[in-house]
Design a protein around this nucleic acid. Sequence first.
DNA 1: TTGTAGGCGTTATCAG
DNA 2: CTGATAACGCCTACAA
Lengths: 342, 342
Amino acid sequence: MKHFTIKDIADKLNVSISTVSRAFNDKYDIKKETKELVLKTAKDMGYHPNPMAKSLSKKRSSNIGVVVPEFINEYYSEIVIALQNFLISKGYQILVMQSDEDEDQELMNVQTLINNMVDGLIIAPTRGSKNMTYYQSKVKEGYPMVFLNRIETSIPVSKVVFNNLKWSFFATEHLIRQGYKKIYHLSGYKDLSVSYERIQGFKKAMKKHHILEDNYKIIETGLLAKEGMEVIEDLIFHHDIPDAFFCVNDMVALGAIKKLKDNGYRVPEDVAFVGFTETRIAELVTPQLSSVKQPTYEMAKKAGELLLKQIENKNTPIETIVLNGEFTIRKSSVKGSTTDLL
Amino acid sequence: MKHFTIKDIADKLNVSISTVSRAFNDKYDIKKETKELVLKTAKDMGYHPNPMAKSLSKKRSSNIGVVVPEFINEYYSEIVIALQNFLISKGYQILVMQSDEDEDQELMNVQTLINNMVDGLIIAPTRGSKNMTYYQSKVKEGYPMVFLNRIETSIPVSKVVFNNLKWSFFATEHLIRQGYKKIYHLSGYKDLSVSYERIQGFKKAMKKHHILEDNYKIIETGLLAKEGMEVIEDLIFHHDIPDAFFCVNDMVALGAIKKLKDNGYRVPEDVAFVGFTETRIAELVTPQLSSVKQPTYEMAKKAGELLLKQIENKNTPIETIVLNGEFTIRKSSVKGSTTDLL
DNA sequence: TTGTAGGCGTTATCAG
DNA sequence: CTGATAACGCCTACAA
């Protein structure tokens, strides 16, 4: 089962390697029969081109680097799967690296991938902006690069982002319309662009409905369930539990709900909840969690398309794509729902 | 910021490319000062070797293919992360492909990776055994390949597996010791090796404690929450709810719990639960879910080590590594616990 | 200790 | 339409 080369095929057919090569790469003239003969024998022999040789010769690796902050949560797993499906269909392999929510690790990942001669990069940054100037310099050099999700709209690079402001606004407004008077937002890291945008959406809803600053709060948290729990502990200690929480993501919401339940609160009767970036678990917990769903598949596909455009044409202008999602209302945020229990 | 080559360094230093090459590959004799000079200039110039050229010349890609059945669930995400960390530290890249729980897709993935000249493969198979003869033939040819997790111990290939029988036995015995009399096992697919082994562990515990066949049942399910829900619907319809369930994984358990709660059952007062392959969500749900934790990090590392051994020495004998985990008892399976509610 | 030259498997240019 | 042949960047005998 050795790997055959074009030379093996050429020898067998008594033609030159150029002829064989041409048979595989449509663009040159070659007699139809010769071509078919080559293709057939190649197939019979189980020939597969050597990607290393091809890359070396073409000076393109057909590999694309993907850097995500983590992929323990579903969100980036789905992104990676979608990217893979799309890019493989276009003849590319992807090299995925995860930064473990660490800026330095992220920079190392990017450099490793660049050194490995990927043809382009799709980066979902961690929080922090230490690396941004470096990335921008690469973009200026013409290095094909697309950013995903966690990046400010204003930065002049190609990117695909979610309309966090809008959907955060919708989610918050839903809580207001349900009649909840005092609403707190567990915001994630304030220096994370998605958090910042969701905060803006939250504030906008408060403003529109003339809710005074006494009746809402924005509390910085992390992105983990644990951090939702910690905040609740603190609020319980200060006897400061509102009617409803809007959380930066489902995990923070689940942590908060857990801690509240442990302390005798009922959800949603005593406290209502809305999450974000819907996870599959949202409809399995009690009560089911209202959440905003992001179009992961589409985001990945758009990012892939943007990148391929850049790879194929170095002078592609910078482009920003903003996508929308959907908001699913479940029991956790509906007034009058009762906890599912006997 | 062009990519420099050894030739650029050689020209700059007025030495030959072989000297430069030797400076990077310790094994040849080279004067210490020359070597240091080369290394230093290389660093100053920002030189990085071209992996394609290196691969082509050495006939090894330093890429390792990883095929997993899915990576939406945490289990394989963790495996992939651990594999990546380990293999990158050894100078390899990994190409990850997921099979979407489909045998044909899996075979395509494996062949894509082989055609891409990976130096070896780590495969966590989907269920079904259609591809196994092909894999075994590759193994016989000497193709470096290690199997992970979902594979029968008896198959003569190198593999790293979890001791499902033992930990399934422990988990079941725990339920028996808590005093639950009628215990059902939601087993996952029976033709999946891990399911089969967990069934054996379950049966073994039943046998040891002289529980008669009237008082236990093994019910085939899938691996998803949805399928746990469906089974419960059916059991409720037949008025056939036992004292306790032992589930093939946490997701099936969570689905089942959800459906029981929706129908007015209390967990664990009316029905107790134990899951498997602990997920992070296990301690966030109400009640917290008892589960068996698998040593994902260690499994991945062992698999990586086995594979590297094979890559470095083609005549490495076949090896099977069986690992153990831990069982965490939480409220879902403790008699006398009450649901956390006001 | 260092240089020369051939090879790894392709692509692509230039003759024929 | 087809065949030589020179790259691509690196490794590694072999020679000096």
